[in-house]
């Protein structure tokens, strides 16, 4: 067995597994990169380490100096990953979290010693971002790494996730991932377009704008600065919404081929199947998708066991992306 000096050395180099059993076409292969294998359980381990490393390099954070406080908005995975990295590096983390995330997410944050500040669930991730921005302005001594705008976020994927995918699946024709901060899509997408022009990049998103009741007008909307900084509208070839019911159905379908992954991974697989359906029968294609995390944090939703319509109603009320 390989030995590692630190848990942080376990981040990245995740496996890719053949999920073509779910492809609707024999000429289209689908591979899934299992980001749940990261030590804090999600793709966000890469981002959290990259954000903290960059801050230390820039002198924003100083390893070994006690009393340094970070604040970050997160609907879960970034907060959990940052909490793990902060605990190892000796920083105190405050996470602003919408109150309607799954219970396992808050439990995990506490495992790693993060302090939780709840923002109104009706305002979704938008509300968490706004509250973190306000708190950071009021407390200028706190470090606000701001994953939605920090170049170290897509950079983590340009440096690690992208090269891993191209090395493991050099025949890739399509890359499909979820759109949250857009870090994965911008970083991997740009790497692939730089090194294998012609690869199509598709974004999958949840219909979250439907459930954000706190939105007073369209001008309260939000596009992550990471998306605009990387010319996301030019980089992406397609952007598709996947509904909660489809997300649950594909999360279950993935479990039938042995893949116990989170609900957003089901949504992304649904998008991959839609993509495969559009590829002509005489064209060989290889789709690579990302399973952002494993299913553990979503067990309380009953996603694998309860009546699908009941789960969909529950999923509408929680943030799973």
């Amino acid at each position: 067995m390989t030995r590692y000096a630190s848990v942080l050395d376990l981040i990245g180099n995740t496996p890719v597994v053949d999920a073509s059993a779910l492809s609707p076409k024999a000429n289209v292969k689908i591979w899934v990169k299992l980001e749940g294998r990261n030590p804090a359980g999600s793709v966000k381990d890469r981002v959290a380490l990259s954000l903290v490393d960059a801050a230390e390099r820039d002198g924003v954070l100083t390893p070994g100096v006690p009393g340094q406080i970070l604040i970050e908005p997160s609907s879960g995975n970034t907060g959990i990953a940052l909490a793990m990295v902060c605990r190892m590096r000796g920083y105190h983390l405050k996470v602003v979290l919408p109150s309607n995330v799954s219970v396992e997410r808050t439990q995990l944050l506490r495992v790693w010693g993060a302090e939780i500040i709840m923002s109104p669930g009706t305002e979704g991730s938008n509300g968490a971002v706004r509250m973190a921005q306000t708190l950071a302005e009021e407390n200028p001594d706190w470090v606000f790494l701001y994953q939605y705008a920090n170049p170290a976020n897509p950079d983590a994927h340009y440096r690690t996730t992208g090269p891993e995918i191209l090395a493991d699946v050099p025949e890739i024709t399509h890359f499909i991932a979820g759109l949250g901060t857009s870090g994965t899509l911008m970083g991997v997408g740009r790497y692939l377009k730089d090194h294998k022009p012609g690869v199509q990049v598709w974004a999958i998103e949840p219909p979250s704008g439907e459930t954000v009741d706190g939105l007073r007008s369209l001008d309260d909307g939000y596009i992550p600065p990471v998306f605009t900084q990387n010319n996301g509208a030019e980089l992406l070839d397609r952007k598709v919404v996947v509904r909660p019911k489809q997300s649950i159905e594909f999360t279950r379908a993935m479990s039938e081929i042995g893949l116990f992954v989170g609900i957003s991974s089901g949504a992304i697989m649904a998008g991959a199947v839609k993509c495969a359906q559009e590829i002509p029968d005489d064209v060989e294609a290889t789709i690579v998708t990302v399973a952002c995390d494993d299913g553990w944090k979503y067990l309380s939703t009953g996603a694998w066991t309860d009546d699908v319509d009941d789960v969909v109603e529950r999923a509408k009320k929680i943030i799973y992306f």
Binding site: S75, P207, S208, L218, R238, S264, F321
Partner: peptide, 29 residues
């Protein structure tokens, strides 16, 4: 529609058109 022709994107009988505000995404992408 921004990726399939914008305002010139074709529509046909029975299509479902959804308007959604752009809001911050979540934790996994």
């Amino acid at each position: 529609v921004r990726y399939i022709g914008g305002l010139t994107a074709a529509t046909k009988d029975g299509d479902e058109i959804t308007l959604l505000p752009a809001v911050a995404g979540g934790a996994t992408a």
